Simulated scan of single mutants.
Amino acid sequence: MKPLLIALALASAMLAAPCAAQTSEETQQRARENFQQADKNDDRKLNPREFKAFINANAEDDIGRASMVRRFGAYDRAFARLDADKDGEITRAELLAARQQ
């Protein structure tokens, strides 16, 4: 009986893996769309006002920690953390680099 349960658990995990990957891809696509929509001047960077719109859109889509940033009103703190070169704008590269940490 125990080997059967283990086999069923492994099979379930294997079937769930593609769904998790697809969800991750869908989430990444939605985040890219949110970035583009928030980037009002189409310069491929987010200033603080655009970043707030980006966070709010991601919070609505339940992406990453955006809900927590919005709930605590920590937009400035999150912006400062992500703005690696401190130029007052956040690029996609900076977002990706923060994700890797």
Rank of each mutant, 00 (worst) to 15 (best):
K86V: 02
N58E: 04
R81G: 03
S67G: 00
F54P: 11
Q36G: 12
A66K: 03
R71A: 10
N56T: 06
E94N: 08
D76Y: 12
G88P: 10
A80V: 03
A78H: 01
E94L: 05
A13E: 13
A84T: 02
A74K: 06
T23V: 09
A53P: 07
R70Q: 12
Y75I: 07
D83L: 02
A21P: 09
D85I: 05
T27L: 01
A11D: 11
D61F: 06
A21L: 10
A74H: 10
D85T: 03
C19H: 14
Y75V: 03
N34R: 03
S12C: 10
G73M: 04
D61A: 04
R77W: 06
N56K: 11
L95C: 07
L82M: 07
F72D: 14
A7K: 11
T23F: 04
D87S: 09
L10V: 13
E26L: 12
F54Y: 11
F54L: 09
A13I: 14
D87N: 13
Q28V: 08
A66H: 00
N34Y: 10
R65M: 06
T27K: 05
A31K: 06
Q36L: 12
G88K: 11
R92G: 10
D76W: 00
R44N: 15
L82G: 09
D83V: 04
L96A: 07
T91Y: 06
D43V: 03
R71T: 08
Y75C: 05
R81L: 05
L5E: 14
E33Y: 02
R70I: 02
L82S: 00
A9V: 07
A93K: 11
S24I: 05
N47C: 05
G64H: 00
A93I: 03
A21S: 08
K45H: 13
I63Q: 02
A31G: 05
A74D: 13
A20D: 12
Q22L: 08
R49G: 15
T23K: 11
R71I: 01
F72I: 01
S67K: 07
E33G: 03
P18S: 09
L96R: 07
L95D: 02
E25V: 01
K45A: 07
D62A: 02
A78W: 04
Y75G: 02
R30P: 07
A16M: 15
